[in-house]
């Protein structure tokens, strides 16, 4: 979902900033699915996603009076949600804030080359989206390094533009593009490995 579709009218924003609870409730309902989804995909755990959901809106409530209407509200909310999710992830891993991980250093060019060339596009969608195979999608995204995973989630699952993704994460647009390419290629390779036996099985049954 592109953030333009998450538009909140200026009156609702002004009302929220003036402390109008009904306006804030409307805002929470409009944004909560997006916040929950991003958190769930970053953390892969519904309880953690709920914690991020609550903390994100508490932060929004605390800081909304400072929000300038010239900025994009959805970018701001996504940024808070992503930061909350990454903070929780690091607490769980007991890692300090890995600044180097988020810097804009040039990406290395290794391991871009695809390993699998099996054409699984022929597998029917209902099979790929069956309860059994959905697990592969979750498992594959969990295997992505954090910085690639977050870019993929914002860009390809949430459909934010390259510019919006760069604003949410505070990295350059070229870093978004490079990480997105790597994320897409890695996911494609991981899924191809999963789906290879199914394609072979289909071919045997023909």
């Amino acid at each position: 979902m592109s953030p333009e579709k998450l538009h909140i009218d200026p009156e609702t924003l002004t009302a929220m900033q003036a402390g109008d609870r009904a306006a804030f409730a409307r805002f929470v309902d409009a944004y909560s699915n997006y916040v929950y989804r991003v958190a769930l995909k970053i953390l892969s755990n519904p309880q953690d996603a709920e914690e991020v959901l609550q903390n994100t809106f508490l932060k929004v409530l605390e800081n909304i009076h400072r929000f300038e209407s010239r900025a994009s509200l959805s970018t701001w909310v996504y940024r808070i949600a992503v930061n909350e999710a990454l903070m929780l992830l690091r607490q769980q891993k007991r890692q300090p804030l890995a600044e180097a991980d988020w810097s804009d250093e040039p990406e290395e060019d290794e391991d871009l080359k695809p390993q699998y060339f099996v054409d699984w596009c022929c597998l029917p969608e209902e099979k790929l989206l069956s309860a059994e195979l959905r697990g592969y999608l979750d498992e594959a995204i969990r295997q992505l390094p954090e910085k690639l995973r977050v870019v993929f989630i914002l860009r390809d699952m949430e459909r934010l533009s390259v510019r919006e993704t760069s604003q949410v994460l505070g990295i350059s647009e070229s870093a978004v593009k490079t990480r997105l390419l790597r994320a897409r290629l890695k996911l494609r390779d991981i899924l191809s490995a999963y789906y290879q036996p199914l394609v072979a099985e289909g071919a045997r049954n023909e």
Partner: peptide, 12 residues
């Protein structure tokens, strides 16, 4: 398959 990968994730 890359296009399909992106589609599946967005869809789900």
């Amino acid at each position: 398959t890359l296009q399909r990968t992106v589609y599946l994730y967005h869809r789900t």
